[in-house]
Design a protein around this nucleic acid. Structure first.
Lengths: 126, 126
DNA sequence: ACTTGACCTGGAGCGCACTCCAAGGGGGAA
DNA sequence: TTCCCCCTTGGAGTGCGCTCCAGGTCAAGT
């Protein structure tokens, strides 16, 4: 028996069972996850590997709809690698922009923290 | 006449007028923005400076409710600097964790991009 | 004075990404 | 066989952060 239950997949991936069902229903997976005779989902290693990638894309801020587009490209099979590449590269650029923006804002917040630290220290040692 | 209209503030800050009104109604500002005799808002430089900070906090992922808590501390006046500092430091740690997480995921995505780049190059030059 | 466009308020609506629920069907242990 | 828990589905509900709207007021130009 190759394949794990939704509970095991949930545990392994750090996503709720509800989220896993939602991703599948919403077309984020490469295929409907196979079912046992009783209708229970059975995730195999390829499913898990794919969902790990989905998780990375989501965790870096890719919207569900773009993950769906990417999944559709992969599902379509060979021949659209340029398109997949373009999608990933566009996302990469977006992530870099966000990292730069957040880093900049963080520097300003750090500055604010330094001011408060001075002020609190002064009161403590006065 | 010191003070700008909501449209000018919106323009200056890069936030919609609706968002500015929403922030005010939701207690994210240090005070209700003063009004002209006709009831129109008149933002002064201190309002704008504060909202710039709010924008930084929001852009780094601080939830509205925490910004509100921070605003309440500042409104309360001197004496709670430790609390403000703690709030900002907790946020700072959170932002650093997120930056690290995103950076890690980005590295994995970059790896994927490299694979596709190879594959696309190979087909192009084949 | 009149027109036009910006502004006001309270409240409804929206998009996103889940999250929860009700009603019912497996499937391994006692 | 019965018990019990995990699973199934479709669909409703939630929290967040805006965003839009109706109906009215105000201010600047002609």
């Amino acid at each position: 028996m190759t394949g794990v239950t939704i509970a095991e997949a949930s545990d392994e991936l750090g996503l709720s069972a509800d989220t896993l069902r939602y991703y599948e229903k919403d077309g984020l997976l490469l295929r409907p996850v196979p079912r046992t005779t009783g209708g229970h989902r059975q995730y195999d290693e390829r499913d898990l590997t794919w969902i790990r990638l989905v998780t990375r894309l989501r965790a870096t801020g890719m919207p569900i709809r773009d993950v769906r587009r990417y999944a559709a490209l992969v599902r379509a099979g060979h021949g659209n690698e340029e398109e997949r590449l373009a999608l990933l590269q566009a996302h990469r650029e977006q992530v870099l922009r966000e990292l730069a923006e957040v880093t900049g804002h963080l520097a300003a917040i750090d500055h604010k923290i330094a001011l408060y630290t001075d002020c609190v220290l002064e009161r403590t040692t006065a």
